[in-house]
Amino acid sequence: MKSAVILFPGSNRDRDMIKALEQISGQPVATVWHTETELPEADLYVLPGGFSYGDYLRSGAIAARSHIMPALKTAADQGRHVLGVCNGFQMLTEAGLLPGALMRNASLHFVCKEVMLETTSTNSAFTSHMEKGKVWRCPVAHHDGNYFADAETLKELEGEGRVAFRYADGTNPNGSINDIAGITNAKGNVLGMMPHPENLIEDLHGGVEGRALFESVMQSLAA
């Protein structure tokens, strides 16, 4: 699996993501600065976590309008896989690649802790090789993770099995509607999620639960 991580001023989980992708794919990971207008060839493009542009205006709003974004939209239209984690998820909604919006946490607090996630759908490459219904732990670290979508959009997401991950066991850290932690687009090649699977990759992290997601993409691509 060839992968590329797109970098923005204020990204801060980019190295975690690159390291995770390198370890799991066994291949070097390309990086792309946001001012570029073309993407390198890759199977998976990742928007990493962080605080691009200091969260000015709205989280992810400025990054979502950067020069590289038209190329990312084209890649998504062509069926390439796109993953946005945390700030990357916020960018994907701001860019219109995923529906809904990520609002300020209901508690108003920045949350940095482990939550439990349920894999609620295995409809996409990101989850097709994961176990449906499995509950696993995953770290979150965000201030604006409170997913919101209007009733019609929610019905679509739920009806089409596009809620990939839900906060489980009462661990919803942000007030997100329907406990939504991650969603995919209609085609299933774009996933946005608030939790950080790239931070549970090796034993030194205290667990390897995050590997399954990346391995699922790899296995789907190989199939």
């Binding site: 205006l57 709003a61 309008r65 701001e94 529906p99 919006a101 609002m103 919101f148």
Partner: peptide, 9 residues
Amino acid sequence: EQLLANTVI
């Protein structure tokens, strides 16, 4: 439409 407001919310 393009930047100042997020018309979803």
